[in-house]
């Protein structure tokens, strides 16, 4: 007796196939998102602190600019008046000599008195001027000019230092702010992975489910790549 040929039996499709994998991937994505959020928070904090430092230095620089302006204005006014008085004294002395030569002794005496007044003003001005009292700037020899260039360099030294610190803080801010932005990009990409895993859960066809799961995994890997590049950059 011949047995009837066995017809191939089609196995019913497992409707829950890959669902466990999708759940694991979804929860893994959640953990990744939490770690990324932590990295993003840290980068943001560093950027905030650097931004604050940068602004604080900028405020100090503005104050220093104000101070430097006032001080140079005062010092150069005093020095300018000193020079004027000194020249006035010399000219009045010369005038007195000319008047004496012309026989006008009374006028010569008046000119001498005025010269003495100008000289007294100049002598006092010399004591007030940093260009004569500070050995760093005072003329080294008779007839030399004070070292005004060195004075301006020294005066602006603090401001230059503050500016360097401000620039450094601004650079640090740029760096960490850029990193924080990149982490946000990675988080946004992870959101796409969440969406794909959600779709994978919803579809009934196991092969399509697997396809969505695969796409989601690729997206996770891409997000991880962005994260590592940012972390090491």
């Amino acid at each position: 007796m011949n047995e009837p040929a066995a017809s191939p039996v089609k196995e019913p499709e497992n409707k829950e196939k890959y669902k466990g994998l999708i759940i694991v991937l979804t929860v893994l994505t959640t953990v990744l998102a939490a770690i990324l959020a932590a990295l993003q928070a840290d980068a943001s904090i560093r950027a905030d602190i650097a931004s604050r430092e940068s602004q604080y230095y900028a405020i100090q620089i503005s104050g220093e600019l104000h101070r430097v302006g006032l001080e140079t204005n005062y010092e150069f006014n005093v020095y300018g008046e000193y020079l004027t008085n000194l020249q006035e004294a010399t000219i009045l002395e010369l005038t007195a000599l000319e008047q004496e030569q012309d026989g006008n002794t009374k006028a010569a005496q008046t000119s001498r008195e005025l010269a003495a007044v100008s000289q007294a003003r100049a002598t006092l001005g010399e004591k007030f001027s940093i260009f004569h009292t500070d050995p760093r700037y005072a003329p080294k020899n008779e007839g030399d000019l004070p070292n005004a260039e060195q004075y301006l360099i020294d005066l602006n030294k603090k401001m230059t230092e503050l500016l360097a610190k401000q620039n450094e803080a601004a650079d640090i801010y740029d760096k960490w702010d850029g990193k924080a932005d990149s982490y946000v990009t990675a988080l946004t990409i992870l959101a796409v992975a969440f969406f794909l895993f959600g779709l994978a859960q919803a579809v009934k066809n196991a092969r399509i489910r697997l396809a969505f799961t695969g796409f989601g995994t690729v997206v996770i890997l891409f997000s991880l790549m962005v994260t590592f590049i940012t972390l090491l950059g």
């Binding site: 006032l70 005496q109 008195e113 003495a116 007044v117 007294a120 001005g125 007030f128």
Partner: peptide, 29 residues
């Protein structure tokens, strides 16, 4: 700072004028 250099300017002018007066007082005229 503004107040300081304002006062410094006035004080300098006062000191210079005082020196001028002293020079006039010391003269023969």
């Amino acid at each position: 700072y503004r107040k300081l250099y304002q006062e410094a300017g006035f004080s300098y002018q006062f000191a210079v004028k005082e020196a001028e007066v002293q020079a006039l007082e010391a003269g023969d005229s």
